[in-house]
Amino acid sequence: MSTSDLEQQPSPVKLAAPRGYELVLPPGWVRIPLREGTKEALENVLFSQMGQVPEGIPRDEAMRFRLDMRRQMEKQARAARRNGGLDLYLPVLPRGGIFLMASFIVAEMPIGQDHAVPPQAVIAQLADEGVPDGTATEVEVAGAPALRRAYRSAPAEEELSSAPEAVRQTALPTRRVEYVLPVADGPGRWISISFSTPGDGDLESEFTGVLVELFDAVVGTFRWSYE
């Protein structure tokens, strides 16, 4: 189980707002906190969690592989933090000899709605806005209304045209799923739980679909923490 703290914001009303959240991670996944303790968490992943490397990596290349993974995780963490990220979740152990290309981020959302507007009304409005080439569905998370948005994302051609060759070769279309939910007893505060994966390179494959289902199952374990 993973637990994370939420930064407390001042409120004009005394409410029993949660101190954080909890969720159950799949085997081999880890949490990287983004507000503090990021460096220590990455060091722990590098030297304690990543005891295995994919098949085909020579023993004398294992440390270089881990360092490359560390740089990639640092890049993801910086990008997530710039976008209001609280926590980054990544798979760090190979499954079937390969590393999964997937991640999800829990982040604060600058929706900025009036505290008097019921969350259900905000979610209905967001659902009505729709998602280009995707779906927006009203769901329930931790016993409260939430929104699930699912879509596909392809790298922008203009971005790829100026990117290095190595970046162009690794830039893949991705399946994305995002849950948007209000913070319990935190008027006007919202978070998102956003998942992204290129799967096995085929966005319609059974394997890619299983990864999306895995993320939905993780969100199903989400609970607010009051301790």
Rank of each mutant, 00 (worst) to 15 (best):
residue 75 K to W: 01
residue 71 R to M: 05
residue 99 F to W: 10
residue 152 R to W: 04
residue 15 L to S: 05
residue 91 P to Q: 14
residue 214 L to D: 10
residue 151 Y to S: 14
residue 193 I to T: 08
residue 65 F to A: 02
residue 9 Q to K: 07
residue 30 V to K: 14
residue 62 A to L: 02
residue 104 F to P: 14
residue 175 R to H: 01
residue 96 G to P: 09
residue 120 Q to G: 04
residue 18 P to S: 09
residue 62 A to I: 03
residue 217 A to S: 14
residue 197 T to D: 05
residue 189 R to G: 07
residue 163 A to C: 04
residue 172 L to R: 00
residue 160 L to P: 03
residue 87 D to E: 15
residue 71 R to V: 04
residue 59 R to M: 03
residue 195 F to C: 01
residue 139 V to E: 05
residue 121 A to Y: 06
residue 220 G to N: 09
residue 7 E to C: 07
residue 49 Q to S: 11
residue 97 G to F: 14
residue 213 E to M: 11
residue 183 V to M: 08
residue 70 R to K: 03
residue 195 F to S: 02
residue 58 P to E: 00
residue 103 S to N: 15
residue 13 V to M: 13
residue 11 S to D: 12
residue 169 Q to R: 03
residue 225 S to N: 15
residue 73 M to R: 06
residue 136 A to I: 13
residue 51 G to D: 04
residue 80 A to S: 15
residue 152 R to K: 12
residue 126 L to K: 06
residue 80 A to K: 12
residue 107 A to K: 14
residue 135 T to R: 04
residue 38 T to M: 09
residue 185 D to C: 02
residue 120 Q to A: 12
residue 135 T to K: 02
residue 150 A to S: 10
residue 13 V to D: 13
residue 173 P to L: 00
residue 113 Q to E: 11
residue 37 G to Q: 13
residue 166 A to R: 00
residue 127 A to Y: 09
residue 60 D to L: 11
residue 158 E to Q: 03
residue 62 A to N: 00
residue 111 I to V: 09
residue 67 L to P: 00
residue 192 S to A: 06
residue 184 A to Q: 12
residue 49 Q to Y: 00
residue 81 R to Y: 08
residue 70 R to Y: 15
residue 56 G to I: 03
residue 59 R to S: 01
residue 82 R to Y: 14
residue 49 Q to W: 00
residue 172 L to Q: 01
residue 199 G to K: 06
residue 70 R to I: 00
residue 17 A to I: 08
residue 93 L to F: 00
residue 113 Q to S: 12
residue 114 D to N: 11
residue 40 E to I: 15
residue 159 E to V: 01
residue 188 G to R: 11
residue 78 R to Q: 05
residue 156 A to Y: 04
residue 18 P to I: 11
residue 110 P to L: 01
residue 26 P to V: 12
residue 10 P to M: 08
residue 65 F to C: 02
residue 162 S to K: 10
residue 100 L to R: 15
residue 19 R to Y: 07
residue 162 S to G: 00
residue 100 L to Y: 11
residue 141 V to P: 11
residue 102 A to D: 12
residue 151 Y to G: 13
residue 46 L to W: 07
residue 2 S to R: 09
residue 155 P to L: 03
residue 133 D to T: 06
residue 190 W to S: 07
residue 131 V to Q: 02
residue 55 E to M: 09
residue 125 Q to M: 09
residue 93 L to N: 06
residue 131 V to Y: 04
residue 1 M to L: 13
